[in-house]
Amino acid sequence: MTTAEATAREADRIIAARSRTKLMHSAIYLVVLAFVLWSVKTTIVDDTDWARLGSLADVLESISEFVGIDWGLVPNLWEPAIETIMVATLGTLLGVIVCVPAIWFGALNITPYAPITYPLARLMMTLSRSIHEIVWALFFVAAVGLGALAGVLAIAVRSVGFIAKMSAEAIEDLDPKPVEAIRAVGGSDFQVFIYAILPQVLPAMISVIIFEWEINIRRSSVLGLVGAGGLGLVFFRQLNTFNHPGVSTVILAILVLILFGEFVSYYVRKAII
């Protein structure tokens, strides 16, 4: 009987503890929810021009305008699609080239002078990653004018951060013995990099580069919106001429392009690794 009582008391204690945790969790969720609701009010309820929006039927009608494919547009999509791929590819390649110093400076075990070069490289990587590609494209359009070059540069600069970060991390994790071996035969820093470090991290780097290339197709497909060529420009034109099925067509084309990119990267990855 006493054991039963003890069990009952223990059960009460556990139930009390569990409801305390539950209460605390609910409090946290309530705060989150309150902030969500408040944000919904300020951003969506107050900021939306409900008169312009009209009724649900109006919204559905304007959505329905996008349904359909403008087959007439399809032949005109080849060129910008190829352009988009090219911009992505050239941008990725240029990014890889720009990456080399960033990787060299940004891996703690090979950086030439850690107190200065390491933070410098980290800053480069962060800047590159933290600024959106549209902003980079705007900047380069201002610098080199409208056209594919601005797109290539924007893609390149935007890619540096991720590739360099992943590669530098791969280098920091590598096996130090071959490095010592090349040092021991009197290799220079550069030779050490080429003969001891690169071979070890190349597979990882290549896979990062392919991954970034895939993402870059997605990016380069919109750079045309700010004047850097490719499918984005066609998209913009369809939108401005209110050819809404054309807009959907361009979006589908982008999807196809990205699928193509995934396909290619799958096979390249399989062939290389």
Partner: peptide, 8 residues
Amino acid sequence: KKDISRAL
């Protein structure tokens, strides 16, 4: 509470 007592 029954389940918890049982678990105990």
